[in-house]
Design a protein around this nucleic acid. Structure first.
Length: 478
RNA sequence: GGCCCCUUCGACUAGUGGUUAGGUCACCACCCUUUCACGGUGGUUGCACGGGUUCGAAUCCCGUAGGGGUCACCA
């Protein structure tokens, strides 16, 4: 039975790296008909952010990643929030101490800092000097009696090689002498990630741990913990995903641009586009196809095809995906997305009108904001006119021709792009002009810019009265 | 610095001993065209380097270089 978990720490907004981890867990679970679990790892009280869990839930819903068990979903292995499980962790930590697999450590953080500094100064790797590893029972008791704060550390066996198999990277080995006597229980009684993670994965019967590569070097600690508990036989399989990278190939971070899923939503990206893009960062089904729906991703997903090397989060291709998904949407779907934006800009138009605008803008929009922000002329008359186009197209002759065209427009009873085009083309023909001599100045006068949808469609949508009034304005003022 | 991981066009990647090294984004050119897009056609650019193994290496082995991650009472 495949049981996987997405285990975020509620410390803020959801990072796109976390999104990819959640996505792969979700795809893997669904592909195998398994269970996808959400577990909240809130053992660091100092970093906890109010509302982060709610935000996470909303974000996951927005992108279409669902869970079968979790704080808001129920399940037989709860609670799914680590701060509600502290008794369990303490119990297991005690068991480890009794078995001699762990020991209490009374060192102050000041002492620890000094030790670290000294080791670095003498060119050694900064590790705990195991000062409390061999305290006698009496010494421990005395310090306990005195109420000296302590942590619990794992007694790492000396001189062992820990090897585990990673589904992405194959066998990976570590020498135990390079591993610190890890803190399992902090002095505030809360567990560290390592302890809570191993206990929960065991108790929740997790079959596969799919997480970012930043965890690879702490995996031997986890393996040792499974051994210390005697749970080695039910140890999950590990799969460490390649990191998402900044353009300079460092770990993807804020500072070099937006990294929160919310930022992408706020910039007009569609969830399906983001998912499609992120899914293909570090994994590829070996096909030439690029566009995949969530259902197709589930059908295709295979951990064996996850790459080893980190992937740069390149926004150009994300933009392409977004444009691609915008083109695939129906007018009604787009209306729902664009309407609030138009409203926000103060453009009060009917749904019918907005749909016409959307239709003309659909294949030129890369973001859902483009429908409104690159097409302001559909909503209000231009007050500024692009200088470049003006210099090129708004010649005195052009102005004269537009003035001659205007009465014909006014007389037109059938205001469709076909009949508008008919008028313009026959005028051009009668005067042996290329149609462009009329089209370009018309566009400028009506829209204020030199680019956009086909002019005749543009004029049709904007409407006869408005077009005529804009032309009159341009003739008088430009 | 120690340990671990990684290395195919600028980016995402296909490729698992024999390919003219393929696709997508971006870029360039041309076509379509009233502009911008869309679409179509074509194109520039890549196996980090050095040794092996082999009749034959992007593919296997070793080394070097480069990049990244990690070394907290954070996850």
């Amino acid at each position: 039975m495949v049981r996987v978990r997405f285990a975020p720490s509620p410390t803020g907004l959801v990072h796109v790296g976390s999104l990819r981890t959640a996505l792969y867990n979700f795809l893997f679970a669904r592909h195998h008909g398994g269970v996808h679990i959400l577990r909240v790892e809130d053992t660091d009280r100092t970093r906890y952010v109010e509302g982060a869990v709610e935000n996470l839930l909303r974000t996951m819903e927005w992108v279409g990643i669902t869970f079968d068990e979790g704080p808001a979903h129920g399940g037989d292995y709860g609670p799914y929030t680590q701060s509600e499980r502290t008794e369990t962790y303490r119990k297991y930590a005690d068991e480890l101490i009794k078995n001699g697999k762990a020991y209490p450590c009374f060192c102050t953080s000041e002492r620890l800092d000094e030790v670290r500094k000294h080791m670095q100064a003498t060119g050694q790797p900064p590790m705990y000097d195991r000062h409390c590893r061999n305290l006698t029972d009496e010494e421990i008791e005395v310090k306990m009696e005195a109420g000296i704060p302590h942590v619990v550390r794992l007694r790492i066996p000396l001189g062992e090689t820990i090897t585990f198999n990673d589904l992405v990277r194959g066998d990976v080995s570590f020498d135990s002498k390079t591993i610190d006597d890890q803190v399992l229980l902090k002095s505030d009684g809360f567990p560290t990630y390592h302890l809570a993670n191993v206990i929960d994965d065991y108790m929740m019967k997790i079959s596969h741990v799919i997480r970012g590569e930043e965890w690879l070097s702490s995996t031997p600690k986890h393996v040792l913990l499974y051994r210390a508990f005697g749970w080695e036989d039910s140890m999950p399989k590990f799969a460490h995903l390649p990191l998402l990278l900044n353009p300079d190939r460092s770990k993807l971070s804020k500072r070099q641009g937006d990294v929160a899923v919310e930022d992408f939503r706020d910039k007009g990206y569609l969830p399906d586009a983001l998912i499609n893009f992120v899914a293909l960062l570090g994994w590829n089904p070996s096909a030439t196809e690029e566009i995949y729906s969530m259902e197709e991703l589930i059908a295709q997903f295979d951990l064996a095809k996850v790459n080893k090397a980190g992937a740069v989060f390149g926004r150009e291709k994300l933009d392409w995906f977004n444009a691609e998904y915008i083109r695939k949407k129906s007018l009604d779907e787009l209306l729902i997305l664009v309407k609030p934006i138009a409203k926000d800009r103060g453009y009060m138009v009917s749904d019918e009108y907005l749909k016409k605008v959307i239709h003309l803008m659909q294949e030129r929009s890369r973001s859902i904001f483009d429908f409104v922000d690159f097409a302001g002329y559909f909503f209000k008359a231009p007050t500024e006119f692009e200088e470049k186009s003006k210099a090129k197209n708004w010649t005195p002759e052009a102005k004269e021709r537009i003035a001659q065209l205007l009465p014909q427009f006014k007389a037109l009873t059938d205001w469709t792009h076909e009949s508008i085009e008919g008028i313009v083309r026959s005028y051009a023909e009668a005067n042996t002009l290329s149609a462009g001599k009329l089209i370009h100045p018309l566009r400028l006068a009506v829209s204020g810019v030199g680019m956009g949808p086909g002019v005749f469609e543009l004029l049709e949508v904007i409407g006869k009265d408005e077009v005529c009034s804009r032309l009159e304005y341009a003739i008088a003022n430009l």
